[in-house]
Amino acid sequence: MTKILFSDKLDNCVERWKSAGLTVIGPVQRANISTYAAVEHASEFDFGLVLPDRSIKDLFFPQSEPMLRYTIKKESIDTDECLPPSGPRIIFGARPCDASGMAIDDPLFGWDYKDEYWFQRRNESVIVTIACTKADDFCMCTSLNMAPDSTKGSDILLRPLAGNKGWLVEELTNRGREAFKTIADILQESSDLPAPLAVVEKKFDLDACVAWLQNPENFESRFWKEISMRCIGCASCTYLCPTCHCFDIQDEGDTYTGIRRKNWDSCSFALFTMHTSGHNPRSTQSARWRQRIMHKFNYFPGKFSVNSCSGCGRCSRQCPVDMGITETLQEISTLSL
């Protein structure tokens, strides 16, 4: 016997969590874009999406974050630190690739300086993940040694029942158990079986790719130029990526008063590594694309023992010129044979 949360009871749960002071967030379709956003009622959720266009990263690492306000006076400088808006929240209906993406970035945001913006939000969020029963051409979690029901980064895993009736509940962490205590009486015992998981075909041999990337001889391979010739150098892939985490710090204001912000930045941009002198160590798009792949599958795992990719496929799905990590690693797989 397992605990079941029936779909028609979800609105009661939303009410319960709201009255317990939690902001309830989940996948929604709004203004022609799907994203994770706060809801008032369960009816606003869209569980039919393979995954939202925008990744869950937005909730932990927003595109533009105020860090401090400053006023420069004659003899002093006043500063006023901006901390992230706090408050507990429950993210209901994350996808396993999105939830694991946040766990992948935890060591990055904590290794030298503990990023309080990231960790405050991480510590105040319960992630309730729904296992995937459908996938599209771009899903590639299995190629990254993950699965449509991976639990990494999740506090609760829900397995959908056939016919959208509800979900089997698997409590994974204490934080998840706490949040589900508030709805303990709404859950029901049942012997219903979960619907079959999505079939996500394995698209490349990750170990072979990593070995090829780690071979210093391949750093200057012609492959990089060929694969990225059509790259237009936008940041669609990096900004939709749940694990891409680069940012820039900018002061906005005039000579006397302003605000310091932490804004997303992207290795796809020529400006990303431009020196004050005008020299750019990554002067071509191929060098920039190589950096992105090397960072995710060579440098990041070298430091944190985990690949900086959770297999969501957004990079390929949304690329204006049909590029992406999948194609690049598929090509590398064949090169390394």
Binding site: A31, Q63, I232, G233, C234, A235, Y239, W264, S266, P320
Partner: peptide, 12 residues
């Protein structure tokens, strides 16, 4: 307000 300044419009 949905814009994320990825500059895909410009690059394309």
């Amino acid at each position: 307000s949905k814009c994320i300044k990825c500059y895909a419009c410009r690059q394309a």
